[in-house]
Design a protein around this nucleic acid. Structure first.
Lengths: 204, 204
DNA sequence: GGTAAAACTCGACGTTGTGTAGACTTTCTG
DNA sequence: CAGAAAGTCTACACAACGTCGAGTTTTACC
């Protein structure tokens, strides 16, 4: 998201700026882990990336923009991974696969995902990104529910609304579990999978 | 949370400071609704309460402390209300009553509850307050599940873990719905109640 | 009702972090 | 190799935070 300069033309060699930009995002991610969003200053990020504050403002207009770009990068990865997952028609398998993938995603990107959730309210751009991501998951869950025999529709007890609630359950449960440990994440996954299966009517 | 002066002795007439303190908290709540936490400055709060910044710092040590006090006041109210709710042994009734109460709470205090959730990460005090509140709900849900026949225990598919996931589902679903409208809140409640009932094995 | 302590209020100050401006150097492109 | 684009830096202006010390009001007690 180089904002200032127009779309970069195709090139063989990487511009210096591309490297810097990645360095900034990487540093931002590291600092986010160490100190959290509030404590992290743009001076810290710049220093970590080996440039001065002034130079950083050449790449990003503000601290929020840096984090937004980081979230965008991560979310992009989520989408990619979601598309890559093999689709199966059998609900039980689909649910198991989805939860497995979710554990992986939270293991790898838990920090950025938590940050995205936290900043959704204050940074509209990030809220947009995250709610769009959630929508993807919600429709996926709804599809599985319908395939398992839950009545389609948007009324409170039909597939769409249930999928939404289940999505938030998963989000929040993983959000907390990923702050603890990998084992907690695994347990959280089991619990969520169990409730999803029950909700789909696949186990009593 | 008058921090500076020791525990106030019992008195008939209210101190001027008590009035001010309430005014500060009320103003804070109002501003939180209008502008959100970040946009709201200490100057704004002081002005709204009819005092200067300097005077505000007599009552509270920081902006965070003001909001923490506001959350504490609200959470106090939640606990009170929870205790007051009639306990029933019949799971179906208990669930219906709990959801009814939850809708009421979010209708009345949705704004402060959302703020508490948002700041849980950055303000440890608030995180403490909120996680304690969540624990109350989790044990309540677990009790109902067990009474309905779900196996007690903390393993991923037993009552405690399920209660935790259901609690987060309710929290998050209401969090989003309360940003929309009362009707959304009502629908959210129906959906959550439905999933809770299914999870308890009370409906197929 | 007077007086000392406390509760309370204020304006001014120092600090930190943000974002901007403008001058300067490097790198690309023709 | 010259001009443009890309990249970098120091210095500045500003906003909000939190602190200080000096005042004013209220309260408690004799």
């Amino acid at each position: 998201m180089p904002g200032h300069h127009p779309a970069r033309s195709r090139r063989t060699t990487e511009r210096k700026g591309d490297v810097r930009e990645r360095a900034i995002l990487d540093t931002c991610e590291a600092l986010l882990a160490q100190q959290g969003y509030d404590a992290m200053t743009v001076g810290d990020i710049a220093q970590g990336a080996g440039i001065t504050r002034g130079a950083l403002y050449f790449y990003f207009g503000s601290k929020q923009e840096v984090v937004t770009a980081l979230v965008a990068r991560t979310v992009e990865h989520l989408w990619e991974r979601s598309r890559a997952t093999a689709q199966t028609d059998e609900p039980r398998q689909a649910i198991a696969a989805a939860m497995r993938r979710t554990v992986e995603l939270w293991n790898e990107h838990g920090l950025v995902m938590r940050t995205a959730i936290d900043l959704s309210l204050t940074v509209p751009e990030i809220g947009e990104l995250w709610s769009h991501t959630a929508d993807l998951f919600i429709t996926a869950i709804a599809t599985v529910l319908e395939r398992a025999g839950v009545q389609a529709g948007t009324e409170p007890e039909q597939a769409s609304a249930m999928a939404r609630a289940l999505c938030w359950m998963i989000e929040r449960t993983f959000y907390h579990a990923s702050q603890e440990s990998c084992e907690e994440l695994q347990k959280a996954s089991s619990t969520c999978e169990h409730i999803w299966l029950i909700s789909a009517g696949l186990i009593t």
